[in-house]
Amino acid sequence: MAVLKTTQTDADVNEFINTFAQTDQRRNDSLELIRIMTSVSGYPPKMWGASIVGFGSYYYKSERSRQEGNWMLIGFSPRKAAISLYVYSGCEGQEDLLADLGKYSMGKACIYIKKLADINPEVLCKLMQSTITFLQSKYS
């Protein structure tokens, strides 16, 4: 079985934000994302690995590989080039939400934004809620 490298830790989230987020804008956006994600998810922020802030968790077993383990429901990382948002699951209706999200780019499983002001916070909340609902029903 493949073991996940990124797991939940006991590291201090605020200390991480204050040292890892390299600009005031990135720090302020990170603190606002913590507020929003806590509100939407109902879970407190926890560090996942050395550089991801996650909220909630679920246990999954991959259908395509032998990988399994715990993973966050939603999360983000204030990386140097962009803020990585882990809020997308590809479930039904999310493509329509992405059309109204604002200015972003997309990786395989995450959304990259330069700053929080570039996106619509209401759409972000809907994306997060749909991902949480989907993951909790799929992996209950």
Rank of each mutant, 00 (worst) to 15 (best):
7 T>C: 11
36 I>E: 03
10 D>N: 13
122 E>Y: 10
78 P>Q: 04
130 S>E: 02
103 K>I: 10
75 G>N: 06
62 S>W: 07
99 A>H: 12
31 L>Y: 12
104 Y>Q: 06
27 R>N: 07
107 G>A: 08
69 G>K: 01
112 Y>L: 06
52 I>R: 04
36 I>A: 05
133 T>E: 15
5 K>L: 13
35 R>I: 04
103 K>Y: 01
57 S>E: 11
26 R>N: 10
97 L>A: 08
101 L>P: 01
17 I>E: 06
58 Y>R: 03
119 I>K: 06
20 F>I: 02
28 N>I: 06
117 A>E: 13
79 R>A: 00
97 L>K: 06
17 I>D: 08
30 S>A: 04
88 Y>P: 08
48 W>T: 10
71 W>T: 11
118 D>F: 09
16 F>R: 14
21 A>F: 11
15 E>P: 00
32 E>R: 14
38 T>Q: 12
5 K>Q: 12
39 S>A: 14
53 V>H: 01
88 Y>N: 11
5 K>S: 13
140 S>P: 09
27 R>A: 09
34 I>C: 15
93 G>W: 09
3 V>W: 07
63 E>R: 14
97 L>T: 06
78 P>W: 03
124 L>P: 03
4 L>T: 09
9 T>L: 13
133 T>F: 10
71 W>V: 10
119 I>P: 01
35 R>S: 11
68 E>Q: 15
53 V>W: 02
26 R>G: 01
43 Y>V: 00
61 K>W: 02
16 F>D: 12
19 T>I: 07
63 E>K: 14
47 M>F: 02
28 N>H: 05
84 S>M: 11
129 Q>K: 15
133 T>S: 15
110 C>W: 09
56 G>W: 04
33 L>I: 11
85 L>A: 08
115 K>S: 07
110 C>Y: 11
82 A>W: 05
48 W>Q: 04
130 S>N: 04
132 I>T: 04
49 G>N: 00
12 D>W: 07
57 S>A: 10
138 K>S: 14
93 G>E: 09
13 V>W: 11
123 V>I: 15
40 V>I: 13
